[in-house]
Amino acid sequence: MSVNNLLENWSQFRHFHPVDDKPHDPYKWAMSIDLDACTGCNACSVACYAENNLPVVGKEKYAHGQAMHWIRIERYWDEDDREFPDQGAQFLPMMCQQCEAAPCETVCPVAATNHTADGLNSQVYNRCIGSRYCSANCPYKVRYFNWYDYPSDDNVWPAEMNQQLNPDVTVRGKGVMEKCTFCVQRLHAAKGTARSEGRIVRDGEVQTACQQACPASAISFGNLVDPESRVHKQWQAQQVALDKDVQTKDKEEGGSELRGYRIFEELRPYPSVMYLERVRESAV
């Protein structure tokens, strides 16, 4: 932290992500979720519990809003006063949007949540002191706090049940903030393999747990800067760009044929999850 270093590399330290240039190389993990395919079955959520050692908090704590589901399925109704929801409901899987300009990162007093070189919003459990400022600042409310010491709670992982815990993922103690990581343990493993073979991770080589489970394959996940990846193609086809707060779709008068959008784009967190609008038949 010498002053020399500071002054010599001043321009580097004053560099803005992701607006100044192509944000990440060779990886920028991103997702796209087709709401027309999503059936709201909750398989992704259970798979996430299985993969990421999420505690089951029990009825009482759930009642207090202390659930720990990193990915939750939201069910929305139409907001007109029809007697019956005759166009069905709308489901939306909501998890950490891994924002490029995450509102949570800047406010953490101890820098426990940072932006990684892969474009993830990382949460460093060891570093977290539990001020919950990140959660206060998250527009999506997808950060989950360990209100209790779940590992030592009697019925969370009693004997035998604890053998299911994924050794690749930490079990978080009390007072620590946690959230969806895009299954970073899987990404690391895949990157390691790819590096040892002198290449980058191929599309489809790594899946998140939710994506893997999703019976309707509504979730695609991959490397946004890899032109071969499905996610890249989807974002491209939908003309959604990472560092924009208004997309082509919204600019066009009278609507467009594109379905891609990101939630709360106007707040400029630049989320890495693109949703594809749900389609409803116009003929009935």
Binding site: H64, G65, R132, A136, K141, Y144, F145, N146, W147, D149
Partner: peptide
């Protein structure tokens, strides 16, 4: 000893 949960804080209501 127990964790902040005893304060009856929750996910949106963190403070």
């Amino acid at each position: 000893q127990t964790g902040l949960g005893v304060a009856n804080l929750n996910n949106p209501h963190a403070w």
